[in-house]
Design a protein around this nucleic acid. Structure first.
Lengths: 174, 174
DNA sequence: GGCTTTTGGTAGTGATTACTAAAATATCAT
DNA sequence: ATGATATTTTAGTAATCACTACCAAAAGCC
């Protein structure tokens, strides 16, 4: 539900009705709406597009990151009722929203994983490649949310890997 | 204010206080909060990153689109209190929000401008290039919103132009 | 069986939301 | 100056928000 309508878009009434419990039981079980959302974020972060299965040490970064981007394209568009990335979309709220803060923390963790993986082989390009991959994934998530399907998104992801290659080859082309 | 906090994040009380008027005057003048937002969207669409100044017919698409992307990088990060693109960020809401519908309409208009410009010289690549550019711009907007500055965003935009070149050269690489 | 503890529901808290009817004030032509 | 017409303000609408004080029933324990 959060994935489909956003954190603010899902009221407590909708949550409790979907869970088949009343508000007091919800607060006994989960503490608050924000804590409940944090659990869901963590669960999603762990299960969807698990980076440790893709960014295997020793693998050529260009290849691994290409798989990551194409995987994101397919994943983000796979369920039309839950388009895009839960974490990246939740990270969009204004800075003082608790849900956005938590989502940004989750996104930053994944950024670090990518950065460290790239730094193994291309330390000079790690920062720029990480910026680039994070930005492309946000773009894929946004496009998915606007209705672009998996096929078109995959074309976008493939084209975007050219940028990864360029940054890996010439990290200081800024 | 909408740019900084989003449509839902700005209440009528904040708007009327900032304008120095009371709610009834606001409704006499603008009709509703949604109509007011529509005006702001249109104004922003016209003034920021005016496509007709960049996508000049006869100009090489790769060059023009590179300028567009780099311009977006700078623009989206120029004001830290209003990061990202107002239209693209507003287009993120769930489908039943009126503000998101209007923003998506504005975004679609700009998409068409890009598409027609590319089709002048590369009709086969127009669709995929448009998807790609739209996605990259959404990514830049998202990254700006997460705090990435103009310098790093420009590096991302330059790398992304490699993808444009690839799609222009081989439109059917899906 | 009687007692305590835990579990879940009833009903409502104050705050905020976009929005508006009606009264008061300002502006205008004559 | 006066009557007519705009415009602004006062004061509130009903709805929804996350959240909770209180109460009843069931479950475990001796």
């Amino acid at each position: 539900m959060f994935h489909a309508r956003g954190y603010e878009g899902v009221g407590l009434a909708a949550l409790t009705e979907a869970l088949g419990i009343k508000p007091p039981s919800f607060y006994k079980a989960f503490g608050s709406k924000a804590e409940f959302f944090a659990r869901i974020l963590e669960r999603y972060s762990r299960s969807v597009l698990a980076l440790e299965d893709i960014l295997l040490p020793g693998r050529p970064p260009a290849e691994a990151l290409a798989e990551l981007l194409e995987g994101a394209a397919v994943t983000y568009a796979s369920d039309p009722q839950q388009p895009g990335c839960l974490v990246l979309e939740a990270a969009r709220g204004c800075a003082d929203e608790e849900s956005a803060i938590m989502a940004r923390r989750a996104a930053a963790q994944r950024r670090n994983q990518i950065r460290e993986f790239v730094a193994l082989t291309h330390p000079d390009a790690a920062d720029s490649v990480t910026d680039y991959v994070a930005s492309v994934m946000s773009g894929l998530s946004a496009s998915a949310r606007e209705g672009t399907g998996a096929a078109r998104l995959t074309v976008v992801a493939r084209a975007a890997t050219e940028g990864v290659r360029a940054l890996l080859a010439a990290p200081k082309n800024a």
